[in-house]
């Protein structure tokens, strides 16, 4: 393959990944890594390096649009980033030392669970909870725009969410993904934060999480500009398009898209874990 052909193919793959990533709050990384390794035979280390960069582009590029819409909650995001960044550093250290087969399989199982609950969980939004004591002290509660007025919501189970966020960060650092699925799981399921607030806050957090392992990736040579350039530019365009669709999309539609995407990724992760590709 010539440099021009490689660049063009990777750009289009990445644009598609960025679109899906922004739409679901997953980040582009989980689609970019299998696309590069399986479709183009790129070494996994280059793939996760480029993916990590794309994850930052998705998050930072889309966050500007989300902030304007008023969905993301900066206090929740910043507080939980303590857990995700520590996790990411730990994950990035581990990436250089241990085999990731077992973790890929475990992560795949977690994703299957998230996908199934996403697909078959119908009773959603509207039923907001009141904040518990810790969430009140951290001033986590907030509101988001819904049908011309502000919808109030509370937050619960902060320690459980914090623990899950450490895991999300570790997976991010280990596999070069944004691990938006686990972040959304922590906020939407554990902390009872409304889905749209969870996905947009997750997208907002993903960039900071990824930056926490990027220094280690860069120093190891995982980030090759010839691979990362088309990935980053493609993902950026796709993510900006995906963000426009998200703001207009229904929560129910989002859940189905979210469920199907993470189910496919779960199978991908498990197969790759068993065959030793990841």
């Amino acid at each position: 393959m010539t440099a021009l052909e490689f660049t063009v193919v990777v750009w289009f793959l990445s644009a598609g990944a960025g679109f899906l990533g922004a739409l679901t709050g997953l980040g582009g990384g989980v689609v970019v890594v299998p696309a590069l390794t399986l479709a183009l035979g790129v070494d996994i280390k280059y793939a996760i390096g480029a993916s990590l960069v794309s994850v930052i582009a998705t998050s930072s590029g889309a966050a500007a649009a989300y902030v304007r819409e008023g969905y993301s909650n900066i206090r929740i995001g910043m507080f939980l980033e303590i857990a995700t960044t520590v996790g990411a550093v730990a994950g990035a250290f581990l990436a250089g030392r241990v085999s990731t087969h077992a973790l890929a399989i475990v992560f795949g199982l977690v994703l299957i669970h998230a996908a199934l609950t996403s697909l078959f969980h119908h009773a959603d939004s509207g039923a907001h909870v009141a904040s518990d004591a810790l969430a009140r002290r951290l001033r986590f509660g907030g509101s988001y725009p819904a049908g011309g007025k502000r919808e109030q919501y509370g937050v619960r189970n902060v320690p459980a969410g914090f623990g899950l966020m450490f895991g999300a960060g570790a997976l991010s650092g280990l596999l070069g993904i944004g691990s938006g699925a686990v972040k959304v799981l922590a906020m939407d399921r554990a902390m009872r934060i409304p889905f749209k607030v969870s996905t947009t806050t997750s997208n907002f957090m993903i960039g900071v999480t990824a930056a926490a392992s990027a220094g280690l990736y860069l120093s190891r040579g995982y980030i090759d500009p010839r691979v990362a350039m088309p990935v980053m530019l493609g993902v950026l365009v796709g993510a900006l398009l995906g963000t426009r669709v998200l703001v207009r999309a229904q929560v129910k539609t989002l859940r189905v898209v979210f469920g199907v995407v993470i189910l496919a990724l779960a199978i991908e992760m498990i197969v790759n874990g068993i065959t030793g590709r990841i």
Binding site: S60, E81, G207, V208, A210, A211, G215, I223, P225, M229
Partner: peptide
């Protein structure tokens, strides 16, 4: 290209 990517990595840092 790599300098641009380093700048990108720094955007979340600037956000913090």
């Amino acid at each position: 290209m790599q300098a641009g990517l380093v700048l990108l990595i720094l955007t979340p840092v600037a956000r913090v």
